[in-house]
């Protein structure tokens, strides 16, 4: 996983307010060569369903216009995020109809970007958030960029969501804080410098099974890669070197 992701995730603990999150998104925009990035929780779920939390790199004028026009109720990206869990390309959505065409035209005026990618984030108590990135470029450039960064965006979206929900004390299905015994075993062996093939052999699992345990451990520790997961695991006292 890239240094860009590491830079951003390292900065997450400081992003506890909307302004802090906005500064983080500005960094996301810069590092990944995007025009805009937004994380927005439209509902915190449960008895805080009416509360929202989020930040964006759009101009405040565009945000104001978007809310004034009530676009959030018809915006195809919001509609698409409401009921699925797979990321969505804006160009695959239904932009027909007068309101949607006006939304597109005005978004272009405010420099939102003509291509976008949205990642839905859902929690068990009805929590609903989305992470969007967008850019003005050709379709070819966009396809290449997304192909290159889609995995990092998925990790980033979930990291920001998990961090935001936990700093708001929201009861949600956060990744288990504790690693399973198996995950602890594989991380410990990695930290001792044992090669993956040897670990797989020792534990009598396939290398892909090993990679699945490492990936799950990475996610639970909020790390960006295996190396980072080991460092976080050691620091938290979960694994002993």
């Amino acid at each position: 996983m890239s240094e860009k992701l590491q830079t951003i995730v390292d900065q997450l603990p400081q992003a506890v307010t909307e302004e802090g999150l906005r500064r983080l998104l500005v960094k996301v925009r810069k590092l990944y060569d995007l025009d805009n990035a937004i994380y927005y929780a439209l509902s915190l779920g449960g008895d805080r369903a009416a509360e929202e939390f989020g930040a964006m790199t759009y101009s405040p004028d565009w945000h104001a216009r978007y809310e004034e026009a009530g676009y959030r109720y018809t915006d195809p990206t919001v509609v698409a995020m409401q009921s699925g869990f797979a990321p969505v390309e804006w160009r695959h959505l239904d932009w027909s109809g007068q309101a949607n065409r006006r939304l597109l035209a005005e978004a272009a005026e405010f420099g939102v970007g003509n291509h976008g990618y949205s990642i839905p984030l859902h929690g068990p108590m009805g929590q609903f958030a989305m992470f969007n990135v967008s850019k003005s470029c050709t379709e070819r450039e966009w396809a290449l960029l997304i192909q290159e960064i889609s995995q990092e965006l998925l990790i980033l979206a979930h990291s920001i969501h998990t961090h935001s929900m936990s700093s708001l004390n929201i009861e949600t299905r956060l990744p288990s804080k504790t690693l399973s015994p198996r995950e602890r075993d594989v991380l410990t062996l990695i930290s001792q410098g044992v090669r993956r093939a040897q670990i797989a052999e020792k534990l009598q699992i396939s290398e892909n099974t090993l990679r699945v345990y490492l990936e799950s451990a990475r996610n639970k520790l909020g790390a960006v890669n295996t190396f980072h997961a080991v460092a976080k695991g050691v620091k938290a006292g979960i694994i002993r070197v």
Binding site: L154, S176, S180, P181, V212, Y213, S216, R218
Partner: peptide, 14 residues
């Protein structure tokens, strides 16, 4: 199947 997995497997990439 957490008994078989030795815990849970949780990741947006899986």
């Amino acid at each position: 199947f957490s008994d078989i997995l030795g815990g849970t497997i949780e990741s947006p990439l899986i």
